[in-house]
Design a protein around this nucleic acid. Sequence first.
DNA 1: CGAATTATAGGCAAATTTGACTATCGACGT
DNA 2: ACGTCGATAGTCAAATTTGCCTATAATTCG
Lengths: 204, 204
Amino acid sequence: MLGVVRIFQPVHGYDVRRELLSWHLDGWMNTKTGSVYSALKILEKDRLITGTALAGEPGRPERTEYVVTAEGEKEFQKLLRTSWWQVKRPAEPLVPALSLMLFMSRGELKSALGARLKQLAAQRDELAFIRASIEDGATGADGDVPEHVREVIDFGDSRIKGELEWTRSFLKRLNEGTYSFADERNMDGHPRPPDTIDARRKSL
Amino acid sequence: MLGVVRIFQPVHGYDVRRELLSWHLDGWMNTKTGSVYSALKILEKDRLITGTALAGEPGRPERTEYVVTAEGEKEFQKLLRTSWWQVKRPAEPLVPALSLMLFMSRGELKSALGARLKQLAAQRDELAFIRASIEDGATGADGDVPEHVREVIDFGDSRIKGELEWTRSFLKRLNEGTYSFADERNMDGHPRPPDTIDARRKSL
DNA sequence: CGAATTATAGGCAAATTTGACTATCGACGT
DNA sequence: ACGTCGATAGTCAAATTTGCCTATAATTCG
């Protein structure tokens, strides 16, 4: 990401990785270690940044520091502004599974949703913890995480709240017997009546 | 995606694309035309599906139909269940821009957020429209979209609601003068007082 | 001290995705 | 009868990403 270089320049690849981690952006972007270096190379090829090989210090000759060029600065502003002005839908990892939900059994699906509720709650706790570790008025001038990174946390938290709400309402619908699952299909194609009656039948 | 083949088998590549579109999954998954065919080839290589070349009909000899193997069925169940039991965080496209927000001006950011609110509202309207086009009790047996696809819509709608809430609260914070933007930095490094005072100063 | 682990720095082959392209058939208007 | 447009069906090179690998300094720990 061009922006990271823009903030921390001059930087080398390892710095970029480190800062992405320290701002806790790794959970919301898919940036693996390897892709940082190739991204930098591509940016350099496109003349948006320029790299200088640093040999200086004793045993560490292999290090390339990058700075943003004038062209890169222009491109950066353009990218930043379109990111803000244009809403882009993220790829939701649950959607494929959701489309295939009828291949599960109603019982397992309910259990899985319960597990998801717990995991989502745990994620929110973790976010709260990270948020609390950001100092009031931090500017990022020292090595610290600047205050506005809290917005990243809050943004994520809101999305999770949204998913929590949907999960609860979906669970309610499942309990009411909505939909006909793979293990419930009988002649007429209607869903089976809810659990109480099933249980009675079983006890016969 | 293995699952799509599982539902519609036997299918060929073009079918897969068509069904993904008809279920409106394209907005939440990143599946471009080309990737469908390579995905099918990989699944075939791994023996999860088997393809049969169909020449039959007049002018269209090039067509390969796929069915899921026994192994593929097992793998399918495994993938489906881990997708449900394990919450995975999506890559949020706004997060990079959010981290770089201080490189914007407060004014433009507020305008952009206003535009986002409108776009998000429009997306919800569109989702409502699609949702309404799904018939009650549809099973997907004919060419229609099965009823449970509504859950996909509702899931997405909840995420959007979450983003809407955050956007409004962020806008409020911006109006209160929180954070110090690139165009607002003065000696002491503190944010400027809120708009009212700015306006007064301007009128002098 | 010496060994093991962690932090620093980066490379690269293989897998995957992208996006633009080819080619045929049928329907439609003119 | 002809050109065009959209739907059908799929290919492929180039761009990108992934995972795992190398190597040295620094730090920890019994």
